[in-house]
Design a protein around this nucleic acid. Sequence first.
DNA 1: ATGAAAGCGCTAACAG
DNA 2: CTGTTAGCGCTTTCAT
Lengths: 330, 330
Amino acid sequence: MPKRVGLREVAELANVSLAAVSRAYTPGTSISEATRERVMQAARKLGYRPNLLARSLIKGKSGIIGVVMGNPRHPLFAVALEALSRRLSQAGKHILIFTAENPAHMADVHVEDLLQYRVDALLLMAANLSSKLAEHCREGGIPVILFNRLAQKVPGMVTVTGAGRDIGQKIATHLLQQGYRRLAYMDEPLSSRELESGFIGYATSKGLPPPERVLVHSQREGAVVAARTLLSQRRRPDAIFCVNDHMAMATIEVARDEFGLKIGRALGVVGFDDSEQASWPTWDLTTYSHPIDPMIERIIDLLLQDPKERHPSRIIVEGVLKCRGSTKRT
Amino acid sequence: MPKRVGLREVAELANVSLAAVSRAYTPGTSISEATRERVMQAARKLGYRPNLLARSLIKGKSGIIGVVMGNPRHPLFAVALEALSRRLSQAGKHILIFTAENPAHMADVHVEDLLQYRVDALLLMAANLSSKLAEHCREGGIPVILFNRLAQKVPGMVTVTGAGRDIGQKIATHLLQQGYRRLAYMDEPLSSRELESGFIGYATSKGLPPPERVLVHSQREGAVVAARTLLSQRRRPDAIFCVNDHMAMATIEVARDEFGLKIGRALGVVGFDDSEQASWPTWDLTTYSHPIDPMIERIIDLLLQDPKERHPSRIIVEGVLKCRGSTKRT
DNA sequence: ATGAAAGCGCTAACAG
DNA sequence: CTGTTAGCGCTTTCAT
């Protein structure tokens, strides 16, 4: 075992002081090219690697961003994670990750650890998390940013979210334009109510019967059952808006395979999130697409911004409804 | 600003020494319930939170596991990440994450950072990464574990992989049993050759014409084009094995929608990875399923194991071929 | 531009 | 069981 090499060993080999070595590794310090070169050479020879932990200890911050993710399998989160990771590592920051099956529960147990690492900031990407967790974090004096695909009311925190009400309204509008009249709405429990209120609000304001609403737990199985129920009624809906693409696809399968409905013509289906598959010919699904890149960009800005000038605020990023075959009446 | 509270402040408030406070936070140290309680109370009052960085600095290890992920969007990785995160945080470890679009390229640039954090271990979950990266890591004296869905030959490293040759063979066997005779094989460049050799080897050993093989880049677009080419031939294949489910689904779409082929009957299709969608009625895709949980379990063991007793080895975890409608001739 | 020394916040021997 | 004393590996005044 070649004994751990530290600043000390390098300094000796290079015949300089510890401080010199340190400076050689810190951009923007006064050090002559000559010594820097000497140091670097010695360092290379010894296989020296500065210890970030020690540096962090002094600096008081770790260069680490804590990320709490609801569900890494959710396509949106996966994409976001990828983008985040890329941009953040460009900025020399790193991501300490946390997944929270049940955000409410894990909150107190494990996020505590996160805070102990003196993360520079905490990014919460969870569909629904206890405000207790949020509170907890802010007490830790760590800036918290909440990122969500759906709007959410979280007072006193920086949030980056989708447009909520507006989106629901936009979708209802599109459906009406296409000539659908009996709308229905398939949601998950605990999700944002803003989407719903926009959707239903607009529909009823136009004199339509209030859209029927079903709440569904497990994405696949629940949606299948719900779709069957919805479509078995004597006066079945002629358009269903599902709060994520998975549900929408399940609905399409049921409508197509079990009820023999022609998607688009006999039944309009709208999804949410614009997952990779949505554009495949098999689904050709009309769905709301989040502007991931701009969202991430905003988040990066916030994350890298001086905490002093960060004020509680809600940043809403608008996406676009991708109109495809699943809502074409022709 | 309530000035940062440290061991010191707590000790003063509780009227004990620094060491006492430290012990109160370290399980398995000799300290009386009485003092521990006093300490905890003072700590709570001050909002004290031990600084893990300082602790790590002393201990020489950070409690952090570095994870390099090829593509967070890959369903397998997402699932693995989730499982890993859960199990690891139970063990008090945390995950510093890294995504590597192009593993070969990012290798030297950013993994360096990872090493500087003195991660306890490095887990590489990338489809294909330069052995240079691997080398680099081991030089850093950090145990490296390679996790891959496909077998790969990496000498001198601990690897956990799928079964490679055997799987390819298993799939060919299944296809023959079902009565398919003109096999084809759709792969990505740079992926493991073991699967292929098992598949092709078995087929030819049974006297079949050597399976045609296409290599495809972009998952979706590439597969669509390749499928068209394959199916346009005068003597088209009657079964296609695709090295991931996405490709398989694309192939199914093309065969069904553009060539009017009945999947299963006229064309057998086999996927790989058993993604969530594979079992949906729309696809009903025969696909190879990785035993994620056992794999993760093995990895966790390795990760938590004393580095001293970790020997280079290749652990192969066997999964199962899920036979579904896409390879039923009836 | 460089070196010496004083810590960052905590743990790990040692004594007592 | 508890306190004292050295550091962990590095950054930073403060002199030189």
